[in-house]
Design a protein around this nucleic acid. Structure first.
Lengths: 191, 191
DNA sequence: GGTCGTTAATTGACTCGTCAATCAAGAAAC
DNA sequence: GTTTCTTGATTGACGAGTCAATTAACGACC
């Protein structure tokens, strides 16, 4: 059992279990024992690898944001024209990997976590900054000086759609979400 | 001290203290003792009047939504034309009473609460329904069959602006928030 | 290819603090 | 003297974090 390359496997399992457990509970009020149990290990092991419950949450949050970041980067890789690139970012925001029940519920709770934990706030700030920077860069050729305002609007709209989905009982509809945001974009760049 | 009309006063004080305390903590992880302490009463009294911690949260949430609802109703009272009415709703959404640090922080946490408490979910659903109904009614003459889609977008955008404000370090800027949403509206109704 | 010390993995049991909820009893109004 | 208001004290549960002890892989050396 006690293999040598266990650490990365355990860490990954615990991170995954954390996201699932937070989504299941709908809040951060999950015990380390619950997380560890779902990951198939003891709570002591979770503490051994992460040191604290907070650290477990941060790792889970980092994972969610990493997946999201990779999704965006991937989508941008093949897009050339500014308009295509902005659309790619929006599409990536609602990618199957990120816009799923689990991630959305976890994501909402990470916003709450950011209210208290500086490290969580920092992570979220990085995500915002990157998204904003990407959007502004490609919006500039499309809407000129309004790039800042439009990127602000797009960012808020994406977050808002996520938030509402967190409350919805229906399964997330990527198509509808994407269409809603792209419609806004179309209106802003003048059809 | 032990006056007869104490109940409503105590209840109101506890509700107010709850909102402040949730905003201060940035989460729902506040103890009944903290809330009661801020309200100037014992934790036993808080339990006496509300029965449980959950009930205290629900009362606080109801209060926030009531204030918001009153604000919208007030704004609509003087607006006649559809376009004016929609703008009034947006303005009311960012009214000084609702779009303040305290309420925003509490509001975010109530979204989390709604993930677990059916009653909280119900309250939030009522708010969504009312807002949506108001918006659709006045958007119909402006955008026809797109009324549903536009009201969806406006609602999500408002929520998104709230969410981002919850993370911001700067004080809420009602003007900027309103302008952002009204710009979206203007684009949708064709300037 | 077998013995053996070293190191990593893993856990059960425990500690210590915290907190929601209860209750019995005191103080003030009416 | 009854009703309402109010609290200090207590209970009972729960949960984060610690620790000492166990198990199993690994490599080295003969």
């Amino acid at each position: 059992m006690a293999r040598h390359a266990a650490e990365p496997i355990r860490r990954a399992a615990i991170v995954k279990a954390t996201i699932q457990e937070v989504a299941r509970a709908g809040s951060l009020e999950v015990t380390v024992a619950q997380i560890a149990g779902r990951a198939g290990v003891s709570s002591a092991l979770a503490h051994h690898y992460f040191g604290s419950k907070e650290a477990i949450f941060v790792a889970a949050m980092r994972h969610v944001l990493t997946v999201f970041g990779a999704e965006v980067r991937g989508a941008l890789a093949t897009a050339e024209a500014p308009r295509d690139r902005v659309e790619a970012i929006v599409q990536a925001s609602f990618s199957a990997a990120s816009f799923r029940r689990e991630s959305i519920a976890a994501w909402l709770n990470f916003y709450v976590l950011a209210q208290t934990m500086p490290e969580a706030r920092r992570l979220l700030a990085v995500y915002h900054k990157r998204l904003r920077s990407n959007l502004v860069h490609d919006l500039r050729p499309l809407v000129g000086e309004r790039a800042n305002a439009v990127s602000e609007g797009l960012g808020a709209l994406i977050d808002g759609v996520y938030l509402r989905q967190a409350l919805a009982t229906k399964a997330p509809d990527r198509k509808a979400a994407t269409a809603l945001v792209l419609d806004y974009l179309a209106k802003e760049v003048g059809e």
